[in-house]
């Protein structure tokens, strides 16, 4: 499992007009690794995720996933190769019952190929998945319209949607934002479990304390540039990281 490269990002750059959202970012990820991406607001975390998952086309640079060049490929292709992402603002099909939200990824060519969930079985697969993520199957929660669920549930529904795709690489964009402490505490072990079972995870997050509990490697972005990459402890002790988070002191 360990030691094999799953994702390689080389000199990735994205300009929106005059603004450079992501500038010359390179990193690589081993199979089974858990990478945290941190940085102040507007530092390019979400854009980087959008670039990797194909939602935004890069200005220059290259993304390789499992030895396949996925630079600028359409999002559904990248998803079908096994890269699953969550959204920062919890997105869901609000009118559908929660468990029906998972039918969409279960209907994808990838899951069909992997043999999970045939016609008529998808509902059961969906409810199993939700049950694992704390939507108790005997309660009313999985059957309620997604739009009526509290924010924390919506975030976890998004996570379930990602897992329904049976990903090789899971990219979470601020999963914990807007979640209550108790919900974070309940969700964290689930993500840890996925990682222990061999899933490679990238997690962009603002809640550093929770993130550092699960990850061994952190990458820091500031103004679109990668300014640090290493264990949480060594990264946070770097001066430029502290400056990025706390700002520079004004002389005098």
């Amino acid at each position: 499992m360990q030691g094999e490269e799953i994702l390689k990002v080389e000199h990735l750059t994205k300009r929106f007009g005059g603004v450079v959202a992501v500038e010359n970012v390179s990193f690589s990820l081993q199979k089974g690794e858990f990478l945290g991406i941190i940085g102040p607001n507007g530092s390019g975390k979400t854009t980087l995720i959008n670039l990797i998952t194909g939602f935004v086309k890069p200005t220059s640079g290259k993304v390789t996933f499992n030895h396949t060049d996925i630079t600028g490929k359409p999002p559904y292709r990248i998803a079908c190769l096994g890269v699953s992402r969550s959204f920062q603002m919890a997105r869901a099909f609000h009118k559908l019952p929660a468990f029906k939200n998972l039918i969409v990824p279960l209907y994808s060519p990838r899951v069909k190929r992997l043999g999970g969930g045939k016609y008529g079985e998808r509902d059961d697969v969906a409810i199993d998945l939700l049950d694992d993520l704390g939507f108790e199957r005997d309660s009313a929660v999985p059957y309620k319209a997604a739009g009526s669920l509290p924010h924390g549930y919506l975030k976890r529904l998004d996570l379930a949607r990602c897992m329904a795709l049976r990903p090789d690489l899971l990219i979470l964009d601020e999963l914990f934002s807007g979640m209550a402490m108790s919900e974070v505490a309940a969700t964290l072990p689930m993500i840890e479990k996925f990682n222990r079972e061999g899933l490679t995870i990238v997690m962009a997050e603002h809640r550093l304390k929770e993130l550092f509990r699960v990850t061994h490697r952190v990458m820091v972005l500031n103004f679109g540039q990668k300014i640090a990459d290493g264990t949480p402890k060594e990264v946070m002790s770097r001066e430029e990281v502290q400056k990025a988070y706390l700002g520079t002191e004004v002389e005098g």
Binding site: T53, F55, P75, R91, F93
Partner: peptide, 15 residues
């Protein structure tokens, strides 16, 4: 119906 609700989520679902 998913496409109507939110096409980005459908794309992220590999469709």
């Amino acid at each position: 119906r998913g496409i109507k609700d939110d096409d980005r989520v459908v794309m992220a679902g590999g469709i």
